[in-house]
Every structure is written in C-alpha cells, then in structure tokens.
C-alpha cells in the first residue's frame, strides 16, 4: 500500500443537494464515525485532494464549478457520487434546473446510494474508492516504467 492510500485527502462539493447528504458527509468527520482513523483528511483545496465527494444532482450553475474542481485535482484521483441525487438526479430529476447525475459530467468511480446516504455507506464508499485509487496508481506507475 502506497502513502497515497494510507492518508488520502478528500474534497467535498455540494452540487445542489438538499443538505441531507452534506451533513452526513460532515458527520463522518465527527467523533462517532471518525473517518480520520483511515488517515482521511478533509481539505478545501482541490490541488491537495485525492478523493472528490460530490453530493446532489448537477444544476446549470454548478457545471463549470465541478469540471473546474475535477480538472485541478492531481492524478490519480477518484470520484465518489453520494446520494440518490448525485447518482441520477433523484427525486429532483424532473426539475427544470437539474441536469442529472454527476456521471454526465465527470467519470464516477464509486456510487453510494441512499436518500440520504448513511455515514456507514459513505465510509464504505470512500474505502472502496481507496482500492480503486491504488489500482490507478499502479497502472500509472507501469505506464511510466514502460
């Protein structure tokens, strides 16, 4: 296991979520769930981040913001879509201002279902993402070796 998966840094962005999933992401950081025991640190800077957590269906206003955050993140990185809205638009998919799931915009590696997603599910999703991150890192290493 490389250093990157021992202490991955996450960045969270709310793309028109109802807050339900956002506060559950925040709850993961607090004493009961304590995601920091996996070495995970929440950062506000996309250039520091390895894992991108997105909540909520994407609306028109957020399109450039999400693309921008994703573009700034160093490779390898993983994207975790959290909650029904980030997966497909959820109950809001028929709203005029909602474009749909996050995967319409950027590639998503792990989908965490639920409305709202429970902290246990979010932690499980992030840990799964770390496995993918490790694979991506190895693939990049091989490519660089050749």
């Amino acid at each position: 296991m490389a250093y990157i998966t021992k202490s991955p840094w996450i960045i969270h962005y709310d793309a028109s979520s109802c807050n339900g999933c956002d506060i559950e992401v925040l709850a993961c950081l607090t004493p009961l769930y304590d995601i920091e025991r996996f070495g995970i640190i929440n950062t506000g800077n996309p250039k520091h981040a390895d894992v991108f957590l997105v909540t909520g269906g994407v609306n028109e206003q957020n399109r450039p913001v999400i693309k921008n955050i994703y573009r700034q993140m160093p490779k390898p990185n993983v994207v975790v879509a959290i909650g029904a809205c980030a997966l497909s638009g959820g109950v809001f998919r028929e709203c005029y201002n909602i474009a749909g799931g996050v995967d319409k915009l950027i590639p998503v590696d792990v989908y965490v279902p639920g409305c709202s997603a429970k902290p246990e599910a979010i932690i499980d999703g992030v840990v799964k993402a770390l496995g993918i991150l490790e694979k991506k890192r190895e693939a990049m290493k091989k490519e660089a070796g050749n």
């Binding site: 609306n59 028109e60 206003q61 005029y96 201002n97 474009a99």
Partner: peptide, 8 residues
Amino acid sequence: FKTSIPHP
C-alpha cells in the same frame, strides 16, 4: 436566481 431556462 440563475436558471437554465429564463423565467421558468
């Protein structure tokens, strides 16, 4: 309010 369609 910035909406995808004007005056929805």
